[in-house]
Simulated assay, not measured.
Amino acid sequence: MTDLDLLHFEQLKKDVQGQYLKEYTPSQDDISKWKGIDIIYFQEDLRKKAKGNISEKSFYTYFKNSPVTKLPRIDMLNLLSIYAGYDSWYEFKKQHLFAGELLLENENLEEEEINELEKTVSETPELPKTEIQPKKVEIQTPTNVDLQKTNTENQDVNKKPTTTNEVEISTIPTKKNFFKKNAWALITSVLIAITGLLGFKDVLFSKTYTYCFIDKDRGVSVINTLDIMVIKENESPLMYKIKPGECFSYSTKDKNLKMKISAAFYEPLEVNRNLENAPAEEKIELKPDDYKMAAYYFSRKDITGNSEEQVALIKQKRNQLENLISNNAVIYQVYDNNTYGIEKIDKQKYITLVTTPTTSLKNLNVIEMKKDNGKIVSIKFKIATTDEKNK
């Protein structure tokens, strides 16, 4: 304890007095002049705010006399400091340093308090260490005495030596927890379930959409093979070929579908669908290309009648094809045999081929036909064999 500590305590009493006067009006503002009911109200407020109490005797000892010659105990100093709005007595002194005063960081207890604690610890008697030894149970077997009695006297008694069996009590092993026993089985089952879910997620979360294609002018199914390109974001396009009269079914978990549809005798069509509310089945109309249809029609048109009528029909057919096909048209005939594969022919050879009266014209199959500025500029065709036609 130092004189500075006593001065700090006088400061603390002023702070305690000021804290109480913020909410209450005692008989006197000076805390040293409080008595009776003032002290009782102060004790109640101290218990409420600092969760502690000081006796009336301590109040008279440290608050009625000013200045004091002895500091209160550290617990009372901390209690009053908390009431005044500080964390501890040390924190209060730290914020009220006098000029030239140095405050140690570990100065939380007064020297007298530390000496008292050390003395108390040193005087504490050491407790003897005892060990609990396992008990042994002794089981004694009963003594067997052989007595043989005659009419006159007892014979000697034969005694068997007494044996003592020592039984050691062993602890019963605790049962393992069910979860620990089956942990690997449970984990394996969960992993298998997750793997199965990931493997079949496309099937589980996919929905199938079916699209059928009809001729817009005639209201019937398209007459030739369709090429469908499904375009997916950040992926290569998916290509599908749909035979005449068949519908296209596509399974996906995506929310949007983009398709490009092309056919030999129909104008190309791009289809975009929002699949969130789209129907499972839909009919899509394809607009026929009149020039391509006409070229196909005249290429397959039969020439019947007498010789004069045939000549007139051939001439009419040639004129119509001349008007429909560009002079610079690129025309390919596709073969299935290994000799040719594909052959390029000019416009006149194509017209001669399709105007020559033969039964093979009924098997003419146009694979691709392109138009530019009202003229056919490209034709790819194939004359199917009888076996192919019957497939």
Rank of each mutant, 00 (worst) to 15 (best):
K136Y: 02
W34G: 06
Y240N: 09
K176G: 09
D45L: 11
K13E: 01
P142F: 01
E118K: 14
N272F: 07
T358Y: 04
L79I: 09
K255N: 11
N106K: 14
K48R: 14
I345G: 02
E166F: 11
T120G: 00
V230C: 03
N327H: 10
L198G: 12
F265D: 01
W89M: 10
K347E: 05
Y296G: 15
D146T: 15
I342W: 00
T188G: 14
F59I: 07
D227T: 12
Y90T: 04
P134R: 14
F205T: 15
N306S: 12
T356E: 04
T163W: 05
G341D: 05
R318S: 05
N65E: 10
K317N: 07
K160L: 10
Y62L: 10
N363I: 01
T210K: 15
V203A: 13
I31N: 10
S170Q: 12
K136G: 02
N78A: 10
A329E: 04
G305W: 04
L238N: 08
R273G: 01
T356Y: 08
V271Y: 10
Y211W: 08
N106P: 01
E112T: 13
N177L: 06
T386Y: 00
K255R: 08
T208G: 03
F42V: 05
E113Y: 04
P279C: 00
N154C: 04
A264R: 09
G18F: 00
Q310V: 01
D336Q: 10
P134W: 02
D372Y: 02
P26F: 00
V16M: 08
K129T: 11
K292Q: 05
E308S: 14
Y20Q: 10
P268T: 03
D217E: 14
I31Y: 09
I187L: 14
L198F: 07
L104S: 11
K253F: 06
V157F: 08
N328S: 13
I231H: 02
T141I: 07
E233Y: 08
E343S: 12
M76G: 04
N272T: 10
T188W: 02
